[in-house]
Amino acid sequence: MASSDPVRVMVVDDSAVVRGLITRMLEEDPGISVVASVGNGQMALNALERHSVEVVLLDIEMPIMDGMTALPKLLQVNRNLQIIMASTLTLKNADISMRALEAGAADYIPKPTSTREMTGGGMDFKQELIGKVKALAQRYRTATGGNRAAPSAGQPVAERSAPSGAAPAARPAAPRPTTAAPGKVAIHPPGPISLRQPSSDAPDVLAIGSSTGGPQALFAVLSGLKGLRQPILITQHMPATFTTILAEHISRISGIPAAEGKDGEKIQGGRIYVAPGDYHMVVESKGTDKILRLNQNPPENFCRPSVDPMFRSVSAAWGRRVLSLVLTGMGHDGLKGGQAIVAAGGTVVAQDEATSVVWGMPGAVATAGICSAVLPLPEIAPYIQKLAMRR
């Protein structure tokens, strides 16, 4: 399959109106083709037997078979399938989305709460959706070597509805690589990566930035950290409500107390602070204390919260005693802040290309030559632990 072939998408939502709107949004991009549009998880399973699909947009709440029930069944049919969970911004749906990421979904996207919002003010939703679909399709194509099974002879190219029925027999799953394959977002010309020596001082803070694929990466890294005395600050590109649930899941998975940061809160060691959705989270020095500040300054890198303001502020507050980590994500947020950290003598670590869902953010800092290490996801926690625990 040529990289120029349109991305093959299936839209799964119980609302015919929403399916139609999303299909039109996607197909306005010539690089995307919606090959199936169905109303529940069972119909999605049926459609997957007839169509070659790379990315699935999967609603959570549907009759007959909901999104969480369908998720493992779809991955059983094709383990490389890239599934984006779609849900409205409620605490319940945010919690389900986080559990879906743990269960194998590649990403999530919050849906506008009404069709009016989707058609009137939904430009941000459309841009985010198209960006995620294309990035995850690249991941699919890299994982499968560009191969796909063609639809059976005589089958229509697109399916707008399919009768529900008995669950299809699962075909042999495509082998899933031992590490997640990348979706490349070019930031700098490819070339050898030069590494710097980490700071010789033990860090007083760990600052982490992440975006697409970030929750899964955060769970993996933080669950591997034991006994750290330093505070951990996290900016994950995520809307309000979702960041509340993200902090709860981090606390449960890692065993480290985690919560959304609060304006004016004194930063304490051994705790995790997550930037709340729609707020930049920065650090202010007040005597010997470090205080969290939240603001709604303009978005940076089209994001709020953004990694760069957090990185700049921790650099100003702690200087060379900053250890920072850039995990999977689209774009280059964290690059300028990472440069400020290195200029002050601190340390930057990045996730490698092979284990990133999208090697945009970590690729930007890696290829800029400001990293002390560029590591596969399973090796990040031991490396962080080693630097953080030294005296």
Rank of each mutant, 00 (worst) to 15 (best):
P362C: 10
G329S: 07
I253Q: 11
Y273N: 08
K184W: 02
N297E: 15
M1A: 15
V365W: 02
M68T: 08
E265S: 07
A86K: 00
D278L: 01
D308P: 06
T90W: 01
M238F: 03
F302H: 08
S211R: 05
Q127N: 14
Q216D: 11
R176W: 02
L81T: 05
S52H: 11
S97W: 00
Q351D: 04
F125W: 08
T88Q: 12
L26Q: 07
P376T: 10
K290E: 05
I370C: 06
A258H: 02
M330V: 10
A181N: 03
A149D: 14
E128V: 05
A180I: 10
E300C: 07
G369Y: 05
V133A: 08
M118P: 04
K262Y: 05
K386S: 15
A70F: 01
E61T: 14
R160T: 14
P276W: 01
H237E: 05
R390W: 06
I250E: 05
G31D: 15
V185G: 01
G191N: 10
G154N: 12
A47M: 04
I234D: 03
S164R: 06
T243E: 06
V7A: 14
P168A: 12
P172F: 09
L195M: 14
G345F: 06
G154Q: 10
F311N: 03
A143P: 05
K73G: 02
P110K: 01
N301H: 15
A207E: 05
D5N: 15
T90E: 06
I96P: 00
T355G: 09
A368V: 02
D5Q: 14
M330I: 09
M361P: 07
T367P: 00
V283E: 02
P112M: 11
Y140H: 14
A2K: 13
R176D: 01
A166P: 11
R148S: 15
T347N: 04
P276Y: 03
A181P: 03
G213N: 08
A103E: 14
S194K: 14
Q236A: 07
D95N: 12
A373Q: 09
P30E: 13
G214T: 04
A247K: 01
K290A: 15
S306F: 01
V314A: 09
S211W: 02
A364P: 03
A259H: 14
